[in-house]
Design a protein around this nucleic acid. Structure first.
Length: 481
RNA sequence: GGUCCCAUAGACUAACGGUUAGGUCACCACCCUUUCAAGGUGGCUGUACGGGUUCAAAUCCCGUUGGGAUCACCA
């Protein structure tokens, strides 16, 4: 049987990094097995509709390099792929469940439910809908139920969970899981607005879409017994389940907005490469037993297996993400990086050619972790000198340097500004003037960049060019002496 | 609190009964060096605890402790 998996987010307005990992694992699993990966939008909660959220989700997923075979945009044989457009389907299966005595009508109001909750809480009993005392088709009787339905009284459809026994299901990452049926609630399947809850919609769609493997976050583990029961009640084969370990905050709680950025868009906007984010997130909860860390999407596809998914949650530690981003920064071609950075440069009022930008990026890439940092780091390569770092100047400059540096300036004036000649000239000059190479270089650094920190000076001068470099040296000489 | 899940260093992880417990990030030191990085070398820190099973346990079993998830007409 060929593999069919799905990523089924609810459109909340952004893509959570945990969602990115779930989507990624589904995608990797599908590609690894030559299967199909589906995007399905779970928007059955009308109270939480966010305009344009589904499009944003698709856009971000595509940015990350995750492509779906079927979905709202690409269509497919099992559409529509948006749950709110599948409305009638859920009512039909809710009716089936009713006929099979696997579900029932309930008429309780919110107040009545609250009262029951309070009663149970006071009695120290675990919360569970008590179908023997509440207002539903069992306690009300057939005639009253029919009457209420006829007059369109507010009602929901609940699933009928066995009162005793055990429910068990297999999980590909955790093995067999068994829970006492008496601890499973009579979940609402169809809300009073006739929309399904997640539990109903989810299993109906997964079945109808031929989903073979349900790969989702661990937070769904507690409700999986309900899903298993529903598949059984409808006489459907259960898909294989794989519950992924959670992504965690530094304090080990479920990764949340409160403790930092959780949206993929946040990381994208902060300048992380999609390759780095994907690579990083792939290794949180899964590891191919290799002693390497850098994997392309293709390499991830080739090595991904569900068997290697971990059970324990993983802290989302951005320190390693920073390092990984730096690795990709070193891997990419300067010209590609320049093209990527150009828009931001323009936005910051920096007008420069792709070629020059590429050379500057190559100059500083080892010293930064994110591409956009190249701009502030090497600001002096794009704009006139903004001044000199006082502390650095105080440390480097002494009046005794005036004479030799003036000499050096004249020598530089007659020198080709290439790495080789500049290196030879500065080294020779250091020797004959008796100055340490470090002093010569740092003084040039002060005069040309104004900063204490930067790339190799001869490289910097070569790229900046003779004209600009000499302008700065002479200006510094005039200002310092 | 009920139910379920989980447990190798500060973080991510390798190990599928036999290894001096391996790798990566971070951290520290040294080398390189023109500052800062990068790179190289080395180092620090770990099988939560207690019982079993076994010739042999990080690994299997039980318990304890700790952590987490979940318990809506949200997904």
């Amino acid at each position: 049987m060929s593999v069919r998996v799905r990523f089924a987010p609810s459109p909340t307005g952004y893509l959570h990094v945990g969602g990115l990992r779930t989507a990624l694992y589904n995608y990797l699993f599908a590609k690894r097995h030559g299967g199909v990966c589906i995007l399905r939008i779970e928007d059955t909660d009308r109270t939480r509709l966010v305009e344009g959220a589904a499009d944003a989700l698709s856009h971000t997923l595509r940015w990350a390099g995750i492509e779906f075979d079927e979905g709202p945009e690409q269509g497919g044989a099992c559409g529509p792929y948006v749950q709110s457009e599948r409305f009638d389907l859920y009512r039909k299966y809710a009716s089936d469940l009713l006929e099979r005595d696997a579900a029932y009508y309930a008429f309780d109001t919110a107040e009545e439910l609250d009262a029951m909750r309070k009663r149970m809480q006071d009695a120290g009993i675990a919360w569970r809908y008590d179908r023997t005392t509440m207002r539903n088709q069992y306690t009300l009787g057939e005639a009253e139920t029919k009457r209420l339905l006829a007059e369109n009284a507010p009602r929901v459809i609940r699933m009928k969970v066995p009162l005793s026994g055990e429910i068990r299901f297999d999980d590909l990452v955790r093995g067999t899981i068994t829970v006492p049926a008496r601890d499973v609630d009579d979940q609402i399947l169809l809300k009073s607005d006739d929309f399904p809850t997640y539990h109903l919609a989810n299993i109906v769609d997964d079945h109808l879409m031929g989903i073979t493997h349900v790969i989702r976050g661990e937070e769904w583990l507690p409700s999986t017994p309900k899903h298993a029961l529903l598949y059984d009640a409808l006489g459907w084969e259960r898909p294989k389940f794989a519950h992924l370990p959670l992504l965690l905050n530094p304090d080990k709680t479920k990764l949340s907005k409160r403790q930092g950025d959780v949206a993929v868009e946040d990381y994208r906007d902060k300048g992380y490469f999609k390759e780095a984010l994907v690579n990083f997130v792939a290794l949180l909860g899964w590891n191919p037993s290799a002693t390497r860390e850098i994997f392309s999407m293709q390499e991830l596809i080739e090595s991904f297996t569900l068997e290697k998914v971990n059970k324990a949650g993983a802290v989302f530690d951005t320190q390693k993400l920073d390092w990984m981003n730096g690795e990709y920064l070193k891997l990419k071609s300067p010209s590609a990086l320049a093209a990527e950075l150009q828009p931001l440069a323009k936005q910051q009022g920096i007008e420069t050619s792709d070629e020059y930008l590429a050379r500057v990026i190559e100059l500083v890439r080892d010293r930064i972790n994110k591409l956009h940092e190249a701009l502030p780091f090497a600001e002096y390569m794009f704009k006139p000198l903004q001044g000199y770092e006082e502390e650095f100047k105080a440390k480097i400059w002494t009046p005794e340097l005036a004479a030799p540096l003036t000499t050096l300036a004249t020598k530089l004036q007659d020198c080709d500004f290439t790495e080789a000649t500049l290196t030879a000239l500065t080294k020779d000059f250091a020797k004959e003037s008796g100055l340490k190479t470090g002093v010569v270089m740092n003084t040039l650094r002060l005069m040309i960049t104004g900063r204490a920190v930067g790339a190799s000076m001869v490289h910097t001068m070569e790229i900046l060019g003779k004209e600009e470099s000499m302008k700065r040296v002479n200006a510094a000489l005039a200002a310092f002496v």
